[in-house]
């Protein structure tokens, strides 16, 4: 089984079949095409998305449904073509939908404007920027009182 050097968890064995391929990379990281999702029970619902090419690049993500159970997915025809999927309006079985999480000193936010959508059947992914800005790219996860108490 191949091993990967990860940013947080040292060397981790992985199955080649669990790698997600982003043919276009991610905006700002156009040359990063292959990521390994790492789930660790004690960190659920977080999913770590470790770059295969760059050990120092690991995104924190979480399922959009865990951020907003009512989330309505909207993916452009171009992005659906990349994924090899038909029209989707809700996070469906077989389609993984992750929000990229940003941690700053005073807040934790999730990017609901541009979720990472992955077709688990072919392990292809795309960061699907919504055609209409109906969700925020900085959806705040942490209530103010939690920040105040910490």
């Amino acid at each position: 089984m191949p091993q990967i050097e990860t940013k947080y968890f040292g060397s981790v064995p992985y199955e080649a079949g669990s790698v997600i391929e982003f043919p276009a990379g991610l905006p700002g990281f156009e040359n990063e095409h292959r990521f390994l999702p790492i789930e660790i029970e004690s960190y659920r619902p977080l999913v770590f998305l470790q770059s295969l090419a760059d050990r120092g690049l690991c995104f924190l993500t979480m399922p959009v449904a865990a951020v907003d159970p009512q989330y309505r997915l909207e993916v452009t025809a171009e992005d659906l073509a990349v994924l090899g999927l038909g029209r989707q309006t809700t996070p469906a079985p077989g389609v993984l939908c992750l929000a990229v999480v940003t941690v700053s000193e005073d807040a934790i936010t999730a990017n609901l404007l541009a979720p990472l959508v992955v077709n688990l059947a072919n392990r292809r992914g795309v960061q699907a920027i919504r055609p209409e800005p109906s969700y925020s790219h900085q959806h705040r996860l942490e209530p103010a009182e939690v920040a105040a108490c910490s």
């Binding site: 700002g28 940003t102 934790i108 790219h137």
Partner: peptide, 27 residues
């Protein structure tokens, strides 16, 4: 989205510096 992704990639360092586990706990 480019700018947010860069912030997210850098923010993981913030999370690690403050103790990833503690950040996750708050989260």
């Amino acid at each position: 989205v480019e700018e947010q992704n860069r912030a997210a990639a850098a923010s993981a360092a913030v999370a690690a510096a403050g103790g990833l586990a503690r950040t996750i706990e708050k989260f």
